[in-house]
């Protein structure tokens, strides 16, 4: 799908203004780009989270397409029900639309952690739907608590940086890889800065013959203690430092590195990313130099492994 500004301008946004996401939050942009990729009637099933809460504060909704939220951990299960209900009603001649796409959306908490079982189950069952995680690296909605999506070294309200702790000590769960291991037709990582890549991949996800998964990186100025104007720039930097490399996995076996990552001659140091955010500030104290070096090493190792999988030298 060619992405052209003039075509984008013609599209009705699926999320209106007047939502109450924080200033500079990238999630509404992520949803906007998702909207640019839609190919027809679409139903969204959303997990509890910032995006859910701040876009549907009764009596207002920013959503212009059919949307349902039930709970935190079940977006994929709700989507299963929506997909199969449409299939059943169509089988019985009671459904008018030829094709309706179903998208489930969750944050990193709702996807990496509490909704992981429901996601895995839905992928295994093979429902035709797209699951998108907007990953802002913590439970930002409940006040910045660590999740399986939180980076090592990241300070949250449940992984404080203190005299003896450097923020979160553990690695980030390699979710896109775990999802790809389900051998579903399509998995892709995206970020809002690379909007052409984002829209193209999302459209591929919709067109996949079975479940598809999109891992969208989504900067959060409030939780990350970053400048509100830098959110899109930080998304770019996450790609350039290898913290959020861009790639696709087809049928769980064919790994393809995407242009923006592939074009990098070498990764920028993670320090450049860390320096931009209050949540990593403590890592520059002398006592965490070694820990910071370990994070850098791990990122480089992961990068080499990804290049190998993608057949990129």
């Amino acid at each position: 799908m060619a992405v052209r500004l003039k075509d984008m301008l013609k599209r009705e946004p699926i999320l209106s203004s007047g939502h109450r996401m924080c200033a500079g939050c990238a999630a509404p942009t992520v949803v906007k780009l998702m909207g640019m990729a839609l190919r027809g009637p679409t139903i969204v099933c959303e997990a509890t989270g910032c995006l859910e809460v701040a876009t549907t504060i009764y009596p207002f909704t920013a959503w212009k397409i059919p949307w349902i939220h039930v709970a935190f951990e079940n977006a994929a299960a709700v989507a299963s029900g929506v997909v199969e209900a449409i299939n059943a009603m169509r089988d019985k001649g009671r459904y008018k639309d030829e094709q309706v796409d179903v998208i489930a959306i969750g944050g990193d908490g709702g996807t990496f952690d509490i909704g992981f079982g429901a996601l895995s189950g839905a992928l295994e069952r093979g429902h035709k739907f797209v699951y998108m995680v907007y990953d802002n690296g913590a439970y930002q909605n409940t006040g910045i608590q660590r999740s399986g999506g939180t980076f090592p070294g990241q300070e949250t309200t449940t992984s404080w940086a203190g005299k003896v702790e450097p923020g979160k000590r553990q690695r980030k769960k390699p979710l896109a890889e775990i999802v790809a291991a389900h051998k579903i037709p399509y998995v892709a990582t995206v970020d809002p800065y690379h909007y052409r890549d984002f829209i193209t991949k999302f459209r591929k996800a919709l067109e996949a013959d079975g479940p598809a998964f999109i891992h969208a990186f989504s900067p959060c100025p409030r939780g990350w203690r970053s400048d509100t104007s830098k959110s899109i720039e930080l998304a770019k930097l996450a790609v350039e430092t290898g913290l959020h490399p861009l790639y696709e996995v087809i049928d769980g076996k064919e790994w393809i590195m995407s242009g923006p990552s592939k074009r990098l001659k070498e990764l920028r140091p993670v320090d450049e990313y860390f320096k931009t955010q209050g949540q990593f500030k403590h890592l520059f104290k002398p006592e965490w130099a070694e820990f910071r070096a370990w994070i850098q090493e791990e990122v480089l190792k992961d990068w080499e492994e990804l290049k190998r999988k993608c057949g990129v030298s």
Binding site: A71, A77, S80, V82, E84, A85, A88, A118
Partner: peptide
């Protein structure tokens, strides 16, 4: 019978899928 059966991975998802399906009008 022309029913779509969803052999879910938990009862939590069973009721969740039921809510999703019911919301569509099934």
């Amino acid at each position: 019978v022309k029913t779509r059966v969803i052999p879910v991975e938990s009862e939590h998802s069973a009721m969740s899928a039921c809510v999703g399906a019911s919301a569509v009008g099934a």
